[in-house]
Design a protein around this nucleic acid. Structure first.
Lengths: 207, 207
DNA sequence: GAATGTGAAAATCTTCACAGCT
DNA sequence: AGCTGTGAAGATTTTCACATTC
């Protein structure tokens, strides 16, 4: 046991977890690495390797107990404690993210939304009042949010990121179509769909 | 020259391209691998390696000619021919994607939008009429679209993907929070932000 | 018999470091 | 002097294959 998980492996763990929680009831109590792999379009060896990084909880000859595996993954991923998230940038995309059910059904709650557009500030959306970005610091410490989602224009992204870090945010999910710089101890993930579309385009071109 | 580009390298190429097109004018005519790397948060060696996979067009001692590099990348990525894209699933996220400027400013045009909700069909959004999903096949052949974006619920994704492929679509950008199966010759990319948020959560937990 | 957990091999991706060009 | 292009080394990730356990 106990090789370090690969960084892509972490995303697979999240896929395993989502799969397990999405098929509810009326299933066998055990699932094999083979079946789990099929469900998320990966390989059985990879499933076993990923899971083995966190201990050994499969049963040879049977597979993994679904309920136990789900619980274990929940723990590994840190989903026990539900997490408060703030969102910055309530444009088209930001509004869609506010409404997105996938976050809530997992363990995340968007507890505040910010914008710098005075026409939006004060309005309500999905039960949240859009707040002035200048209140960021106060609200972050008040809600003890550790994660932020930013969906602002590319040229505003770095400034917002800096402000978030100053306010105490430790992890940022960036939807702005640009790269930003953060200190070593701040976690950052990009969701960059124009790049993904470009990649698709490339692959079509070179098929 | 001429090692095969890594699959992550392709996404970097798209980043280089976006960076070059985003800084307009008033720049040096040449840019070094070092500077380009900085701009997109990668390394100089990686930039040179990625580019070298498609020929040699840097100038030792000077760097890369910005305009030439931009043109070259455009060619590599297949951006010459602007590409018609259809979108399936006009919910919150789909609507935001329709409005997203980033696609247009690159070479993509969303030429049709589909949904299966009779309350939405016939309505107009961003100058497009939302069409009945059953017209998919006709519209795809008419517009000669080769790429599709899907933003439908997870449980509808596979069905939509199958229909798209039947209609002649060759590349799919999937925003549905689930994995789908496609034949070998169909290109598929996932934009899976609940997974990215989970990864952020994991990294916060194990920082 | 069936499926895990894991060394070892293979494949892929990144970095080093430097010869060679401008 | 400055920077590219690239072999070679290194690091990471995936796959193979099988002894071991239930």
């Amino acid at each position: 046991m106990s090789r370090k998980i690969s960084s892509t492996g972490i995303e697979r763990l999240a896929l395993y977890y989502r799969y397990l929680t999405s098929v509810n009831g009326s299933e066998e109590a055990f699932i094999s690495s083979e079946k789990l792999a099929k469900a998320v379009e990966h390989t059985a060896a990879q499933v076993r390797r990923d899971l083995s990084c966190f201990g050994t909880f499969g049963t040879p000859g049977r597979g993994y107990n679904r309920a136990a595996l789900e619980a274990k993954l929940s723990g590994i991923l840190g989903k026990e404690k539900c997490r408060n998230v703030v969102l910055v940038g309530v444009g088209n995309l930001g509004s869609a993210l506010l409404a997105y059910k996938g976050f809530q059904s997992q363990c995340y709650t968007i507890v505040a939304a910010f914008d710098n557009d005075t026409r939006k500030i004060g309005k309500h959306l999905k039960g949240l009042e859009i707040q002035d970005i200048r209140k960021l610091s106060a609200v972050v410490s008040q809600t003890r949010a550790k994660m932020a989602i930013i969906s602002v224009p590319a040229d505003a992204a770095q400034g917002v990121v800096d402000a978030l870090i100053l306010a105490g945010i430790q992890g940022i999910l960036n939807f702005a179509p640009t790269r930003v710089v953060v200190p070593e101890d701040i976690m950052l993930q990009h969701v960059d769909f124009s790049i993904k579309l470009d990649r698709l385009c490339y692959e079509l071109e070179h098929a």
